[in-house]
Amino acid sequence: MIRVENLTKDYRGLRAVDGVSFTCEPGTVTGFLGPNGAGKSTTLRILTGLTLPTAGNATIGGVHYGDIPNPGTQVGVLLDAAAQHAGRTGREVLALGAATMGLPSSRVDDMLNLVSLTPTEAKRRVRNYSLGMRQRLGIAHALLGDPQVLILDEPANGLDPAGIHWMRSLLRAFADRGGTVLLSSHLLHEIQIIADDLIVIGNGKIVAHGTKDELLKGSRVGTFVRATDAAALAAALESAGIAATAEGDGFHLEASAEQAAKLAADAGLVLVEIRESSQGGLEEMFLELTSTTQRDALPTYGESA
């Protein structure tokens, strides 16, 4: 379990973290969200012993990170994929980690296979890695010691869609085996898919904390469908009495994917896209909760300065 209690951090009169408290339970993925400068990274650095708090407490399994014996075997950490020795090969990075933790060298091959870094890629120096490859190497290092807790800051940066799907499946499986995951990311769609619990921070303070279902209760969830013949689909939906809202060249339905697929089959329509969707959802909630801390206003065009 991760427990943060009344955590505060001041930097020369600037309060970066202000009385933050939350817990992350085993068997769950907790999404840690907030705008740039909200205090996410500072909180994670304090939690992993890289920064001292001004006040408050942050523990993992009831112990401060710095007091955990051989911490890599208990807590896997990835805070910055770029913070890896550029002159070493990927295999060397993992081999040194394994030696430091007292692990067998076989763990290196296990992790390279897990994150799909090929033998050729493993022999390349990290300076020649793409960001996505560095992320995979960082995740491999975080998992090297077979920890029970993962703390990850933007691990999907640089990953292609297939890589993001892979990472999502990996983290879900980790939590389903009883692990604890604290995941900071700006990819709200991915967080909405994978997270069990959500923490939203703004201006150094927690502005929302709860289960995903609780926090998104007001969102209208349904199905997005797109057909080769949009007009025929609209007519079929109207005839079936299914409420639908046009979204681009498709429709958001207040119906399940199974209902949408059956309607299309009965009407002889070809669907080219069908997926769960939500109107409102995490993005709207995030923007609303952090509206006073957002750097960017909505752009307007065509108006004179």
Rank of each mutant, 00 (worst) to 15 (best):
G204W: 11
L271S: 01
D160H: 08
S106V: 05
A267M: 12
V270N: 08
P299Q: 09
R45I: 11
D266T: 14
A83K: 13
E190K: 04
M101L: 15
D196N: 15
R88Y: 14
I274R: 03
E288K: 15
E25Q: 15
L182D: 03
P147D: 12
R127S: 11
G179S: 12
T118E: 03
S184Y: 03
T180V: 09
I206W: 06
G90D: 02
R172K: 00
H85Y: 15
H64Q: 06
K205L: 04
I46P: 06
T292I: 06
R177W: 02
F286D: 06
D18L: 04
V29K: 02
V126N: 07
K217N: 08
I151M: 08
A86M: 07
T8M: 06
R226Q: 15
Q192H: 05
G56F: 00
L287V: 10
N6T: 13
G90V: 10
L14N: 14
I206F: 09
A122P: 03
R177I: 03
P53T: 13
T28E: 11
D146K: 11
G102R: 07
A232L: 05
K40Y: 00
A240D: 13
R220N: 10
D153L: 05
G210K: 08
V29L: 12
R3T: 14
E273Q: 14
G31W: 11
E5T: 14
P71W: 01
N128K: 11
A246R: 15
E254M: 05
E284V: 08
G62L: 12
A267S: 14
I139Q: 07
T73Q: 13
P35K: 04
I151E: 00
G268I: 12
T30K: 05
Q135D: 00
L159Y: 11
S21T: 14
P104N: 10
L187T: 02
L182F: 10
A122V: 10
P69W: 09
